[in-house]
């Protein structure tokens, strides 16, 4: 908001032009290096596999991954990606909504918040994956268990993160609202929540990753479809091409979902005019 926008100038000074050109050149160079490293990595991987220096049965090789990818794409790739994305999004949305709601309750009542403190600390440090068998027994070995796992992993983090943000709202802002006789609800809606929009999105960015971790862990345990299922299945039948292809697709899916949150943040920020 504070920087000088270039469009405000009708003509740019020659120094500014040189500066901008230099910036652009650096950016292009960085991008070229990034692509270059990836291509070289793939090239040597393929080369060493063909020369027999590395065992392509265990470590696979780019050309075989590519052909696996093509045959998966013809067959049921979309189904598996769809299942994983669906489970992740459901777990993510539930985690955000329930987590934020709990954080609001804890912000509202310092009494409840003090009571729940030791529980939150313990739950936060507990590796949630250890709950896998318990979850399966309680909600059954199906999609529900996977979503539940995603929720379990992201929920407590959301609660703690949001609560921390709410508590660190500028006190003077709250005092200012009180001078107009604001109720606690008004203080929350008009000061605390808008103040924490960026906290919310930081927590969303962490959560989308955590939900995916939960979903893959869940799919390792119970599932008939999804990228986690493909990875486990490929490992069991020793089809490393399938495992590698799935991992790569998973990386792409994770990156796309993260970018989705970033895009959402940009829209929300514009709307809230931060």
């Amino acid at each position: 908001m504070n920087e000088v926008h270039d469009k405000e100038y009708t003509t740019l000074s020659s120094e500014r032009n040189a500066y901008l050109k230099g910036q652009k050149r650096t950016q292009r160079l960085i991008f070229a290096w990034q692509i270059g490293i990836l291509l070289q990595f793939l090239f040597f991987w393929e080369l060493f596999a063909r020369m027999g220096i590395i065992d392509s049965f265990i470590l696979s090789q780019p050309s075989r991954i590519a052909s696996t990818f093509v045959s998966m794409a013809k067959y049921d790739l979309l189904l598996h990606v769809g299942v994983t994305v669906y489970e992740t999004l459901v777990g993510f949305v539930l985690g955000v909504i329930i987590g934020t709601a709990l954080a609001v309750v804890l912000w509202w009542s310092s009494f409840i918040s003090k009571i729940s403190e030791p529980y939150l600390v313990v739950l936060n440090s507990l590796p949630k994956i250890a709950l896998g068998p318990v979850i399966i027994i309680i909600v059954g070995a199906g999609t529900e268990a996977i979503i539940f796992m995603a929720l379990a992993i992201s929920l407590i983090v959301t609660v703690l993160e949001m609560l921390n943000g709410f508590r660190h709202t500028n006190r003077e802002y709250i005092r200012m609202a009180s001078t107009f006789g604001a109720t606690k609800g008004q203080i929350f809606l008009k000061v605390v929540f808008p103040y924490n929009i960026s906290t919310l999105f930081n927590s969303l960015k962490i959560n989308i990753g955590l939900s995916l971790v939960g979903v893959i862990a869940g799919e390792f345990l119970v599932s008939k479809a999804g990228l986690g299922y493909l990875i486990v299945y490929g490992g069991q039948v020793f089809k490393m091409d399938l495992v590698m292809a799935s991992v790569i697709i998973l990386a792409i899916v994770a990156a796309l979902m993260y970018q989705g949150v970033v895009l959402l943040q940009k829209l929300a920020m514009r709307w809230y005019s931060h």
């Binding site: 005092r175 107009f180 008009k190 103040y195 005019s273």
Partner: peptide
């Protein structure tokens, strides 16, 4: 509502425009 209280800092909310900041008290009340 008879009393207006102005604190040391201006406490303008940085996500609101000046116009919306000025209307803040009216909204709250």
């Amino acid at each position: 509502s008879h009393i207006g209280y102005m604190l040391q800092n201006d406490n303008l909310l940085d996500w609101r425009t000046i116009y919306k900041n000025v209307l803040f008290g009216l909204e709250i009340r």
